[in-house]
Design a protein around this nucleic acid. Structure first.
Lengths: 347, 347
DNA sequence: TTGTATGCGTTATCAT
DNA sequence: ATGATAACGCATACAA
């Protein structure tokens, strides 16, 4: 009732050729040789009729949906405040556009992982999968990998079974915490970015411990709490530590988002950064340079991460088998003002 | 080479029935009556074989891709810092899941609107379109609407031609600015959230002017600047105003994201909020309660906006023709500390 | 109650 | 250099 659908037959009729010819011309099929005149005629009429090949028909016969799937392993409630996500989308849309593909996105809640994206894949909705924030307890992932379904992780799981693009969370975290130690801090609290099932959270916490150990500082359970992506969790966990009476002079928040909440708790309890407490985050969200105080943090090249993951997936879809399973991108400690203890926060 | 593809034929064979029966059972076709025994047998074997209908084949024959398209009218560079987007995704994924549909996302750059999503639609990749942040100069939109393609806007365009879900940007902005005026401010700067081609930006600016006029205050061009979504733009524009020497005691930033940047400029120039300058934002991003100072802002129910838009689209796809073209959701002024001039920012 | 036959719009394999 | 024809996997009208 609504859209006038133009088929390749219509184009063929209008151009006085067969459907085959239309297909040959429009797909620029290598072997087929079409007279320049016919080629132009087909192209012109196709354009004038506004012909666009039917995606479903094409997918059905070519066995390629031309769609990349981005699946985020997050609970529903956490996605709304995931300021990291837009950067991932930017990178992936970029790659998709460059390769004439589309981007389908979905989330999979930790509790029903098994069914969730198996469906997506089995229905051949997508040709390949980018999984953001893989969890250690993900079972469906193994299944898909066993079937040789093209998968690239943004993030990483232990071992090098999967194609992955990530930063070295552990050493970056260690580096950040060592920076605090060099600044003279001995009692450093840590609020993770998420629960430890998320490998990135586990790794960052491990880096925190490593830094402590390397410098001969004791790991104090009372200074460690688990965040859950949100600023709110950062606020709550930090407040708990403060109210518990535990002493500390610095905080390592394992994501910027969480760091914002930590900062709020510090401000509220008159322990504000940088004068009274040093604070360091992780991610370098676009707005982290503009919050008060500007946040010292670990820069994660999020868009580039996504771009690499996308390109890697495209390579695999084209039949290549890249040697290198894991790509680790560089992080950099961005020094701003949130851990310049004693200095003015205005530079 | 990779995935074992299970077709309805396989299920039929294994269950000792015909493909038709399989289809009838699995789709729960109303009229067809299948013996309970056969029905169970089909369901069981389908499940044990891990059968999932092929999306392309189904789409081809049913003329329904079962995919919702979310298109953001944004330049590429702005999406990465769009902290509003995750909320939109959450709401839309919600609706998609509830209706057994998928979500495809794309962006369309202002410069090549015409081609961009026409393709998406013509290829029948998506059954309906949700357009976030429509621009006044969008031409492709008209084309699609003329073809009766199902479209719902998140945001609005003048008139009630399109199905739209939005907040009343103008009156919300007016309300916010009037709050500042009631607080005693007479010189109020305004940094918009985006350039005026975006209807939300234009509306919010109009609300700002209305508030001024209603209270008999003059509109001063020197106090108004256009942001472009990012905190960075807020910072830059605010700094320009400050350096221009224009006087003001309050700022209305037309998005929280921009407000963060404004705040940074104020802090840097020793005009920090709330002591020296009142600041009010727009959106109420999840982290706005946690920045320093906690931001007074207009709460926009972003997730709900998306959910409504999604549900409206689903209704339309099911053949309904909802009477009401425009749904306006309530906003609320959230009073935090960024405009409590003279008071402590800690409550 | 279940099976047969047909078509959806495309690409790919053959002929011509 | 171009055209017939056969799949792709499913849903559906119709037959049995």
């Amino acid at each position: 009732m609504n859209i006038k659908r133009v088929t390749s037959q219509d184009v063929a009729d209008a151009a006085g050729v067969s459907r085959t010819t239309v297909s040959l011309v429009l797909n620029n099929t290598p072997n087929a040789q079409i007279s320049e005149e016919t080629r132009q005629r087909v192209i012109t009429t196709a354009r004038s009729l506004g012909y666009v090949p039917d995606a479903a028909a094409r997918a059905l016969v070519s066995r390629r949906a031309q769609i990349i799937g981005l699946v985020m392993a997050r609970s529903h409630y956490h996605i709304a405040s995931d300021a990291f996500l837009p950067q991932t989308l930017e990178g992936l849309l970029d790659v998709a556009h460059q390769n004439g593909m589309r981007l389908l996105i979905d989330i999979v809640e930790p509790q029903h992982q098994k069914e969730a994206y198996l469906q997506l894949v089995r229905a051949k909705h997508i040709d390949g999968l980018i999984l953001s924030g893989p969890r250690l307890d993900d079972e469906a992932l193994t299944l898909l990998d066993d079937e040789n379904f093209p998968i690239v992780l943004i993030g990483r799981l232990p071992g090098d079974r999967y194609y992955s693009v990530d930063v070295d969370n552990r050493s970056a975290a260690r580096n950040a915490v060592e920076h605090l130690i060099k600044l003279g801090h001995r009692r450093i609290a840590c609020i993770t970015n998420a629960s430890p099932e998320y490998s990135a959270a586990a790794e960052r916490l491990a880096g925190y411990r490593e830094a402590l150990e390397a410098c001969g500082l004791a790991y104090d359970q009372n200074l460690v709490r688990y965040g859950d992506f949100s600023s709110k969790s950062g606020y709550q966990q930090m407040k708990q530590i403060i109210l518990s009476g535990a002493e500390f002079s610095a905080v390592f928040a394992a994501s910027d988002e969480v760091a914002y909440g930590v900062n709020a708790a510090l401000v509220e309890q008159d322990l504000h950064s940088p004068e009274k407490t040093a604070l360091i985050g992780f991610d370098d969200l676009p707005m982290s340079a503009y919050i008060n105080p500007p946040l010292t943090t670990v820069r994660v090249p999020a868009t580039e991460l996504a771009r690499r993951a996308g390109n890697l997936l495209v390579q695999i879809l084209e039949g290549e088998q890249p040697e290198q399973k894991v790509q680790l991108l560089e992080t950099h400690l961005i020094l701003r003002h949130s851990c310049n203890l004693g200095k003015s926060m205005l530079s």
